[in-house]
Design a protein around this nucleic acid. Structure first.
Lengths: 139, 139
DNA sequence: CGGTATCCCTGAAGATACTG
DNA sequence: CAGTATCTTCAGGGATACCG
């Protein structure tokens, strides 16, 4: 977990990723939407590319256009960002979420990301046992 | 989401919370387990208490002992931390996770936190529509 | 448009010494 | 044991100017 944070944990990095999930791909668009300084954006993008969550390449339509796209591991961060967003909705915005996620086909809202075991049953924290590998379990 | 990060996003804060989920409650235990400087630990704990995710109080067994415990909103961060841990397991450790979570009663491993809609169906990113409130949707 | 280069500022973090 | 106080270092960030 610490390693994961090392790679994507900085504040701007997460906001950049959020924009990526929103479909933003170009330098100037990140810049305008986030109101971030160019040098900072440049550094964060580099960092994210090195971390393997973004990919930098020329656009297929226009080779002069450069775009940043989520890699597979980047896309796989969706549950993290959404879990964070849902937490913020519950505990900061008191349920009045500034962003909503829905199933684009059915319109059904996204369910709260909760803990479940392999059988799909929801688990509470009390049911959960954490084991460091090579150690016996603790609560 | 940015607001959520503002409250709990710093590196040490997340590691402290991880220890809390592991059952650690006392200053000295955080200090030893994390190898963190006292002043830094002190500052981060204060921050977390102010953010409302930890609570500082005297122990019930021994009133001289001070303990830090997860509040309800703190406990509710579990899905965020676990989603992050699972991502790290997949993309950094290549499936060889240094930590495992299991159902303490049945031993069943924790399922991957994935996106589901209200019906419990798993959603892919493609199925997901993100809407800023007051805006029309984007991918 | 998509960056670099430069300068400055701030806050997080580390080391260490001290305290009730 | 659970901190506070002080000092230093460093990375992240902001502003601005410049470049191919």
């Amino acid at each position: 977990m610490a390693q994961a944070l090392e790679r994507v944990g900085e504040w701007w990095s997460l906001l950049i990723l959020r924009e990526c999930f929103g479909g933003v791909r170009r330098f100037g668009d990140f810049e305008r939407r986030l109101g971030i300084a160019k040098n900072v954006l440049s550094a964060r993008l580099k960092h994210l590319v090195e971390a393997g969550v973004l990919e930098r390449r020329a656009s297929k339509e226009d080779a002069r256009e450069i775009e940043y796209r989520l890699t597979e591991s980047g896309k796989d961060l969706a549950p993290v960002l959404i879990a964070l967003a849902q937490w913020g909705d519950r505990w900061i915005y008191g349920g009045k979420a500034p962003v909503r996620f829905v199933n684009r086909h059915t319109g059904a809202p996204l369910a709260d990301l909760g803990l479940r075991d392999d059988n799909g049953e929801r688990l509470s924290l009390r049911d959960l046992q954490m084991q460091r590998v090579g150690e016996e379990g603790k609560e």
